[in-house]
Design a protein around this nucleic acid. Structure first.
Lengths: 119, 119
DNA sequence: CGTTGCAGTACCTTTTTTCATACTATACCA
DNA sequence: TGGTATAGTATGAAAAAAGGTACTGCAACG
């Protein structure tokens, strides 16, 4: 951890969120309903099992996500957001909203460029 | 860019913010004052010249940061936040705030652990 | 009796990101 | 005349993140 306090705070926040898939995992779990491993996998069609496992373990370690194993066969494991994890909700939401606007802006610029090309 | 719209929005947002140093660069520029290359370097003591250059170029490409060259010798180049860059302010702020709370929480947990150890 | 679903692990490769060091040209200062 | 400051670039190495494939054991389904 860096000792620069400002940097420190960004790093702490980003460490929890970043990883190619973490925001998405959290987003889905923040919908409230606990999800099984393969349910998450279906929601994130392009993730590999390995990556999903790794990210979930990291989120669990930070107590953002809870993992409950039902001792039955075939296995059942449920993941859900913790109370602490919910505190990330505003961050994710702000990020999500800005992302949407950013995408829209890029689309508009692209459109303008194409318009100029046909002239 | 992924075609999953939800993922798309996170990726778009995170791409702009992430990179070990980008949030910090944006944070400093969001203070309002234009900063010269070496001023930024002093504010981010551990960054290498190369990384600072690369990140600034990326931010410039996304029109989040403006780069103005004064044709004089020795060179003078000033970086400042663009109007569009300012739209990132709420994102950075939310992130920063959560980061601070996260750091504090970790500190508390660490303290409790140490307390338990001395018992 | 073969297939599918469950929740992973093991092992190895590739890609991406970051780091370290050396180098440029010019002007100002002592 | 040597050192410092300016804003970088070039090159190669290292570290971190992500991906790919194969494999497990058991049960239910057809």
């Amino acid at each position: 951890m860096p000792n620069n306090p400002v940097q420190c705070q960004f790093v702490a926040a980003l460490d929890s969120i970043v990883g190619k898939w973490k925001p998405l995992i959290l987003y889905h779990l923040l919908q409230g309903k606990p999800l099984r491993f393969n349910e998450l996998r279906r929601l994130l069609p392009d993730i590999t099992q390995r990556m999903l496992t790794l990210h979930l373990r990291e989120l669990e370690e930070e107590e953002l996500v809870r993992r409950v194993i039902y001792p039955q066969v075939p296995p059942k494991v449920e993941y859900s957001i913790t109370e602490y994890g919910m505190s990330l909700s505003p961050v994710l939401e702000t990020l999500h909203r800005w992302g949407a606007a950013h995408v829209e802006r890029k689309r508009l610029i692209q459109e303008q460029k194409e318009q100029a090309d046909t002239d």
